[in-house]
C-alpha cells in the first residue's frame, strides 16, 4: 500500500484555486491568518492581488465576502471548519445564505484528522450546521482528484457552496480516466448485493478497504461515494438500498446531522431501511495523530469492516 500516492485535500484546494484563477477572473480568495495551513497561500503566491488576508476575524471575513459578491466577485473564504462553519454559522446563514450570495466556503482541517490540536479544533459538526441553511450546497471531497474537481464545480455553480477539506494526507482513489464530478451525483464504486456502504470524504477509502475485507468473508458490499451531502443523490441511495436492504453510512463527522442523518432522511421518507451510522458518536475528539484517531474512532478500513460485519449478521 505504501506506493499509493497520498495528498491532503487542503493541498488540492490550494492548487485548484491557482488552476482556476485564469478561467474565473472574478475569483478572489480570503483568509483569516491561516493561509499557510489552509493552503490558500499557494494562491496568494501566484495571485497576490487577488488574495485578501482579513486577519483573525472570521465573522468579518464572511461579511466582506458577502459584500464582494454583491459587486460581482466570486469570493472563496477560508479557515478551519471549526471557525468557517462553527464560529461563523450565523454570519454564513444571514449574510450569505439568506441573500443567496455567490460565496464559496473552503473549510479545511475538518473532523478528527486535525489530530494533535485536539477537540477545540476538530470540527465534527460542520456538515450538520451547513446543510440546514436553505440553498447551501455542501460538498465533502474524498481525495485530491475529487477536491480539485469540486473547487471548479463550485466556481461554475451560482450560489453558496460549502466545501470540506482535511488536514491529513489521504490516498488518491479517483485517479481514473472516466472520473467525472457532478454536484449532487453520487458515485457507485463497487457493485454489491448484501449491504450498501455510503461514505463521504476520507471515509470513502476506508469503505473500499472494508468492502475488500468483507468480500473475503463472503459479504458483498456496494460502496457509494456521496461527495455532495446537499443536495443529496436520492436515486443512487434508494436504488442500492432496494437491492441490499441494509445501509451503513461512514463519515468523519458526528453521527448527528451529517451524512448518516441525510441518508436516513432519504430512506425514512421513501424506503424505510435499517441503517447503521458509523462516525463520531456524539463525543468530542482528543489529541493524537490523525492515524491513531481514525483507528480509535473506528473509521479505518478495519473498524468499518467490523461494524458492517456485525450489522449484516
Amino acid at each position: 500500500m505504501s506506493d499509493i500516492k497520498k495528498i491532503a485535500t487542503r493541498e488540492s484546494y490550494g492548487n485548484a484555486l491557482v488552476e482556476c484563477a485564469e478561467d474565473f477572473p472574478e475569483l478572489v480568495v480570503l483568509d483569516a491568518d491561516l493561509a499557510g495551513a489552509t493552503k490558500t497561500g499557494t494562491f496568494k503566491k501566484a495571485y497576490p492581488d487577488r488574495h485578501i488576508d482579513c486577519g483573525i476575524a472570521e465573522s468579518n471575513m464572511t461579511g466582506i465576502a458577502a459584500g464582494l459578491a454583491t459587486c460581482g466577485k466570486i469570493p472563496f473564504i477560508s479557515s478551519f471548519a471549526m471557525f468557517a462553519a462553527g464560529r461563523n454559522f450565523e454570519q454564513v446563514r444571514n449574510s450569505i445564505g439568506y441573500p443567496h450570495l455567490n460565496v464559496k466556503i473552503g473549510a479545511t482541517h475538518a473532523g478528527i484528522t486535525v489530530g494533535e490540536d485536539g477537540a477545540t479544533h476538530q470540527c465534527n459538526e460542520d456538515i450538520a450546521l451547513m446543510r440546514t441553511i436553505p440553498g447551501m450546497t455542501v460538498i465533502v471531497p474524498s481525495d485530491d482528484v475529487e477536491a480539485k474537481a469540486a473547487v471548479r464545480a463550485a466556481l461554475e455553480h451560482k450560489g453558496p457552496v460549502y466545501l470540506r477539506f482535511g488536514r491529513a494526507a489521504v490516498p488518491v482513489i479517483n485517479d481514473r480516466p472516466d472520473y467525472k464530478f457532478e454536484i449532487g451525483k453520487g458515485v457507485k464504486l463497487t457493485e454489491g448485493k448484501d449491504v450498501t456502504i455510503v461514505a463521504t470524504g476520507i471515509c470513502v477509502d476506508s469503505a473500499l478497504g472494508a468492502a475488500k475485507l468483507l468480500e473475503a468473508d463472503g459479504i458483498s458490499a456496494e460502496v457509494i461515494n456521496i461527495h455532495t451531502i446537499k443536495p443529496i443523490d436520492k436515486d443512487i441511495i434508494l436504488a442500492s438500498a432496494k437491492k441490499t436492504g441494509k445501509v451503513v453510512t461512514v463519515e468523519e463527522h458526528s453521527v448527528i446531522g451529517g451524512l448518516g442523518s441525510a441518508v436516513c432522511d432519504v430512506l425514512s421518507e421513501n424506503l424505510p431501511t435499517p441503517v447503521k451510522k458509523i462516525g463520531v458518536q456524539d463525543v468530542f475528539g482528543e489529541s493524537g495523530s490523525a492515524g491513531e484517531l481514525v483507528k480509535k474512532f473506528g473509521l479505518d478500513a478495519e473498524g468499518v469492516y467490523k461494524d458492517v460485519k456485525a450489522f449484516v449478521k
Binding site: 485578501i52 465573522s59 468579518n60 464572511t62 461579511g63 466582506i64 465576502a65 458577502a66 459584500g67 464582494l68 459578491a69 454583491t70 459587486c71 460581482g72 466577485k73 469570493p75 454570519q91 449574510s95
Partner: peptide, 10 residues
C-alpha cells in the same frame, strides 16, 4: 458593516 467593507474593497 462587514458587507459594506466588502463592497468598498470590491
Amino acid at each position: 458593516i462587514s458587507a459594506a467593507v466588502g463592497m468598498a474593497l470590491a
